[in-house]
């Protein structure tokens, strides 16, 4: 069972093409992890010409402690939604870090150690709108990340969305969550330790209660 984890410093990078909703994905996930789960989170992004045109990037650093350096340098998780992004940022993945790819977009994964789903096709076929792709990724990650609780993440997402697109995003979130459970199984090997050796669980107990009380 997933609960509060005493996180040292966990670095995530979302990368892909402009228009895939990468910044929104980072923002919603960051808000969910910080406001919903109570972690410290810094979210930064690449601005500038590259943000408007081809590529897009958004970084999260998640920690139970105060985060000093806000940028991601050694990635625990790289989400690559385009071949170019995958090529560019794969080298920054730390040993044992997890790579998640969009299997239709990344034709040549740089390693066989990766988790993949055709997120865009899923959005088109199952949800009906390709723009819901980023929410499917969010749902999938909420399952995978040992410190993310899907219920909290989903509720937090709902709070930030305008009424008229709420339902469709919940649907997309659930789809991603379900598919990840089915295809990826439980938490990746690299992160198993986090759940098993959950030393912070006792320390974190009060805030755990708090989040339970919010219900």
């Amino acid at each position: 069972m997933k609960g509060q984890v005493d996180l040292e410093r966990f670095e995530i990078r979302f990368s892909g093409l402009g228009g895939q909703g990468i910044l929104t994905l980072g923002k919603v996930m960051g808000a969910g992890l910080s406001l919903g789960h109570g972690y410290n989170v810094t979210q930064t992004q690449s601005y500038g010409p590259e943000a408007r045109g081809g590529s897009s990037r958004c970084d999260l650093v998640v920690s139970s402690q105060r985060i000093s350096f806000p940028k991601a340098e050694n990635l625990d998780l790289l989400v690559a939604l385009s071949q170019e992004a995958c090529n560019a940022y794969y080298p920054y993945l730390k040993p044992g870090g997890v790579l998640i790819i969009e299997t239709d977009m990344v034709a040549q994964p740089p390693t066989n150690q990766y988790l993949g789903l055709p997120f865009t096709a899923m959005a088109k076929d199952k949800i009906g709108i390709p723009q819901a792709m980023n929410t499917i990724v969010l749902g999938a990650l909420s399952h995978l990340l040992p410190f993310a609780i899907p219920r909290i993440m989903r509720r937090n997402m709902e709070e930030t969305l305008p009424e008229k697109i709420r339902a469709v995003n919940v649907k997309a979130f659930n789809l991603g969550n379900r598919e990840a459970k089915k295809r990826f199984g439980d938490v990746p090997v690299a992160w198993e330790g986090m759940v098993v050796e959950d030393k912070g669980a006792e320390k974190r107990a009060p805030s755990k209660k708090r989040s339970a009380a919010k219900k």
Binding site: G30, S34, L35, N40, V41, T42, Q43, T44, Y47, P70
Partner: peptide, 10 residues
């Protein structure tokens, strides 16, 4: 600076 201004935090 651009980093401080464009970092999101709680």
């Amino acid at each position: 600076d651009e980093i401080t201004a464009h970092t999101r935090e709680k």
